[in-house]
Every structure is written in structure tokens, then in C-alpha cells.
């Protein structure tokens, strides 16, 4: 195994251990954090998909499409077929959204910039419009989900949040490790080149179209995971999952994180959820005002996102090291 692959997997392993430990700590200290963290992970997974798209030079403003599809697919599986096993539902949600994304992607892969963004909005709003009017599955009220089980085990009420959080943590780490490995792979590097210069990528013999389809499908799978997870966390799903303002929050997280770091996505999702919790508590009327102001501040002062912050620290260290080396060579 390659050294960088080993390092990434090791980082993932450490992350799982830390997150699980944190879960047990918060279970006995501040239980509400577990629910917030689970929701943040759900959001973060969707935003991870947007970041994957961003690496290929595209931003989707309609990831609610796959978020909602995953939630509804797994939700219907639970209510109609009686499958309540959380891992199974996650796989169902992921596959449903990935499939939808795969079908849709050839249509939208021709577009760039705001046209790509707006086409994704249009598609997510079509889904929203359909769901609102489908009274058989709850219309605009949506429907309530049964309590999830975990490989046959039904946790008691006190431990329900913890169990779902632990599953979410594992899913988040597996998903981020896999995405990181993809970013660092040969294909991932070529995809990053698409962002910079499509013409050259084609003239080197790679297909920009294929990269876009691949990214949109990955983003679909991640969106489906996020939707399923949040459906289970909230215990209720409705068409607002596909509304454009929901998608806007995913883009918010992605921009706050930047496309360089994978873990920054979950950090920004957690920041968003915490800000949301606090402003719901103290400023319930001005939550959007705070969010909007925050977004502008991020765009102005941290255009590369939180992830770029780490990159800058790393670059600074490298520059210092180089300077020292040169000094050493000079003396």
C-alpha cells in the first residue's frame, strides 16, 4: 500500500476512535450535542458532494434533489416495507440518489457556471413540486419515520441519539476517507485539472464529460446518505428537503469549508448547526440574518474556506523550512 494511502486510512481510524469516544462523553455530559452532531454529519455529507463537484469546477445549487431523494427512498422503505434497519436504509438512500444522479448527469454535464447551478435548482424544484402534490405520501406535510434499529438491535430511548450518532460518525469517516483517497488518486488529480483548464484536459486525452458524470454521481450518493441520515435523526421528512433554500445551506457549508480539506466540511457543518441552535435559542427571529451576514464575512475574508486556512499554515511552515535551509546552505 502506498504511504499516503496508509496515512489517510490511519487518519480515518483515529477519527473514528475519537468520534466514538466523544460520543460516549457527550452521552453523559451534553446529550443535545449528539443530535446536533448527527444532523451536522448529514449536512456535511451532502456538502462533501458539492466539494467534489467544486474540484471539477462546478457548483450545484440544487443538491436538495439528491438529499430529498435519499430521504424519501429510505423513508418509504421504512414506512411501506417495514425495513427499519439503519445501515440498510443508508445503503438504500445512497443507491437511490446515486442512480438518480447518474441518470440526470448526462443532461446537465454540458453546462457550466450559473447555468449548471440553476439547472440543478430547477430539477430539485421539480421534485419539490411533485412531492408537495403527492398526497399519497403526505403531500407538503411529509411523513413520520419509525425509530431506526441497528442490525436488529433497538436502543432504548435514552440511547437512541447515541446509537444514531455512532453510526453517523462511522459513515462520515468512511465517506471522507474514500473521498480523500479519490482526491489524491490519479483520477482525482485529473479532475482537479478540469477545474483549471478543460481544453487542456481534452487535449491530453481525458473526457471532461466523464469527470462531471462521475462527480455528480458521487455527489448524489453522498447526498442520499446525508438525506437518509437526517431523515432518521429528525424522525420526519417533508418536501422542504428539496427546496432551494435547503440546497443553499449545503452550498454555504461547502463554501465555508473550501474544496481543499475533507474534514473541514464536517467542521463547517457543525459550526452551522451550532450557530443555528444558538440563534434559535437567543435570536429566533434573526437566524437567516446571522447566516447571511456570516456567509458574506466568509466570502470576503476567507475566500478559500476553512480548509485553505490549514493549507496556508502548511505553506507557511514549508516556506520557513525552505528559508532555514537556504540560510544553512549560505552559511
Amino acid at each position: 500500500m502506498h504511504a499516503s494511502t496508509k496515512r489517510t486510512c490511519l487518519a480515518g481510524l483515529i477519527a473514528v476512535i475519537l468520534l466514538v469516544l466523544a460520543g460516549f462523553v457527550f452521552q453523559h455530559w451534553q446529550t443535545w450535542i449528539l443530535f446536533t452532531a448527527t444532523k451536522a454529519i448529514g449536512y456535511g455529507l451532502v456538502a462533501l458532494g458539492i466539494i467534489t463537484l467544486m474540484r471539477g469546477g462546478l457548483v450545484s445549487f440544487g443538491q436538495g434533489l439528491v438529499y430529498c431523494t435519499g430521504a424519501y427512498a429510505s423513508g418509504l422503505m421504512a414506512t411501506r416495507l417495514g425495513v427499519t434497519d439503519a445501515p440498510v436504509l443508508l445503503v438504500v438512500g445512497m443507491l437511490a440518489s446515486a442512480l438518480l444522479a447518474l441518470i440526470v448527469s448526462p443532461l446537465i454535464a454540458r453546462y457550466r457556471g450559473i447555468f449548471f447551478a440553476m439547472l440543478t435548482v430547477a430539477l430539485s424544484m421539480v421534485l419539490y413540486g411533485v412531492l408537495v402534490k403527492m398526497n399519497a405520501i403526505g403531500g407538503s406535510d411529509g411523513f413520520t419515520l419509525p425509530e431506526p434499529t441497528f442490525l436488529g438491535w433497538q436502543p432504548s430511548v435514552d440511547y437512541a441519539d447515541l446509537a444514531l450518532y455512532l453510526l453517523a460518525a462511522v459513515v462520515a469517516v468512511v465517506a471522507s476517507t474514500a473521498t480523500r483517497l479519490y482526491y489524491d488518486s490519479m483520477a482525482g488529480l485529473v479532475a482537479l485539472a478540469v477545474r483549471e483548464n478543460e481544453l487542456r484536459v481534452e487535449y491530453l486525452g481525458s473526457s471532461v464529460f466523464k469527470v462531471t458524470v462521475r462527480h455528480f454521481t458521487i455527489a448524489g450518493a453522498l447526498g442520499g446518505l446525508g438525506g437518509t441520515l437526517n431523515g432518521m435523526a429528525l424522525g420526519h421528512i417533508d418536501p422542504l428537503f428539496s427546496f432551494w433554500t435547503t440546497s443553499g445551506e449545503f452550498v454555504f457549508i461547502a463554501v465555508l469549508a473550501g474544496y481543499i480539506s475533507v474534514s473541514a466540511v464536517f467542521l463547517s457543518a457543525m459550526i452551522l448547526e451550532l450557530v443555528r441552535s444558538f440563534s434559535n435559542l437567543y435570536f429566533p427571529e434573526t437566524w437567516q440574518l446571522i447566516l447571511g451576514g456570516f456567509l458574506i464575512v466568509v466570502i470576503v475574508f476567507l475566500p478559500g474556506g476553512i480548509g485553505s486556512f490549514w493549507e496556508r499554515v502548511k505553506e507557511g511552515r514549508a516556506a520557513r523550512a525552505q528559508a532555514e535551509q537556504e540560510e544553512g546552505a549560505g552559511s
Binding site: G113, L295, I299
Partner: peptide, 27 residues
């Protein structure tokens, strides 16, 4: 402040303005 930057970025700035104006009208 954002002229000449990525058009998707400006889209996001106007999204932020939308969020702010939503609450301002309510206030």
C-alpha cells in the same frame, strides 16, 4: 467588492443578501 470574481461566488453573495433581507423585512 466581488466584480471580476467567479460568477457562482457572486450568486452566493446575493443568496446571503436574500437571507439578510428576509429577516430585515420581518424585523
Amino acid at each position: 467588492l466581488f466584480y471580476g470574481r467567479d460568477e457562482v461566488l457572486i450568486l452566493l453573495v446575493t443568496y446571503a443578501v436574500f437571507l439578510v433581507l428576509e429577516d430585515v423585512t420581518k424585523l
